[in-house]
Design a protein around this nucleic acid. Sequence first.
DNA 1: TAATAAATGTCGTTT
DNA 2: AAACGACGTTTATTA
Lengths: 259, 259
Amino acid sequence: MEDQARQRAKEVPSLEEAFNAIKEGIYKRRFIIVVGNCRVDYRGRANSKLDPGERLLILKPDGSALIHRPRDYSPVNWQPPGSLFRTSLSNGELLVRVYRRKDNEVLEAIFDRIMMFSVIDLKDAGEFSLYATEKDMQEAILFQPSLLEEGFRPISPERPVEPGFIDIMGVDREGVLTLVEIKRRRATKESVAQLKKYADVINLDKNRKIRMILVAPELAKGAQELLATLGYEFKAITPQLCSEVLKQKNSKTITHFFK
Amino acid sequence: MEDQARQRAKEVPSLEEAFNAIKEGIYKRRFIIVVGNCRVDYRGRANSKLDPGERLLILKPDGSALIHRPRDYSPVNWQPPGSLFRTSLSNGELLVRVYRRKDNEVLEAIFDRIMMFSVIDLKDAGEFSLYATEKDMQEAILFQPSLLEEGFRPISPERPVEPGFIDIMGVDREGVLTLVEIKRRRATKESVAQLKKYADVINLDKNRKIRMILVAPELAKGAQELLATLGYEFKAITPQLCSEVLKQKNSKTITHFFK
DNA sequence: TAATAAATGTCGTTT
DNA sequence: AAACGACGTTTATTA
């Protein structure tokens, strides 16, 4: 039975063919691709208008929608997941309306010509893993504190502090309290400001000695002065190195497991 | 001649058919859509691994690439414009490699089954207009200063200040220097901090009286205290209202033009 | 190229 | 729902 097909596509279809396929695809929560000539209107947090041209429209089963032009990484218009799809056909135009209750946002694509459409039941349960994130850097330093400096001993993995969290709290070889802020990219003045916020909250008893260390692959030029002014320190560590360290950690864990 | 066709697509093609079409599409800088079962690897600023599943791959003529799963607004993997595409076929697998010189980033999608592909020459010269941005809010207040408060007079549209720019600088009905920072979303503590940075630079002669006004649709709760502490003010204005004001401005301009 | 701030930012987490 | 910070943030603007 045709309705049971996992996919349906057509090149240069009529508006009616596309309309019927899209309508069915919305109802069945399929992955929908439409390429054609359209204009686009958006009203919500901002407003936008896109004059006619040939673009790709994507409607996903989770209620997200994207309109992509032939250039750029980012979609020219979109709606986040949870939006509602509706389509209609009138006056030789195919309308796809995407409504999002939050922020009362409406996205409308109006096609006068369809070049291709595809309606597919996509099965995707693959796991996605991202490595060398800030969290990985934190884990790596906790696993191998000498990455920061010899003699460093972490106290607790993450201690909640008023504005957010200190990434790592510990004690140096002299026993001095040491706070560590981690950035996976070049640290900026903003990073230093963030570190100061933490210091201000922690360092209420001013007579207590404390070290503040900013960890990042690089330190921006402007940030150097500020860091020096505040008497903070910088330690260059790349996320890639941390990723390597974690790899060792995991292989060791496995070794231990099979020992 | 088949090579001159503006588009070519196929449902459930063989890997060979897809490979040939993609290769030609890359060479001719076409808009390429591939749906199929694949795994994905990324190495660059971070590293990532995506286990097999059915996804959509987009290769654009400007060298940007996107891999979309059946859910989420954002692509699971991508490369920005300017990347280089390459494809190969071996051992029953179709590889699409996207290389970006900056950051030495590599994205690889390896397909073992293609469900659909489409290679199209997309023509899109339509103009995109976005309204109700922060810049629009600035323009609207400059055009109708009473939006901020009665008697306010802007001095210069944008006066360069050390860290970035003051959005609006002016004088209130009493002649007091007034600096305005605009946010198109709910203003946060960060917004207030930004305002303070500007104040610190401008207000070098401390005896000069100065007013700091934060303009935004809303003020976050935590930001209220900080604002009060610093003696700054808040004025609620929505980007949508500003957009309306600008619409009037433009219609007036047109009226004047035809008068 | 570096720095800075905006974005319909999105996304996750915690309160 | 609000607040907060990370993101392979991206993108634009300016020095």
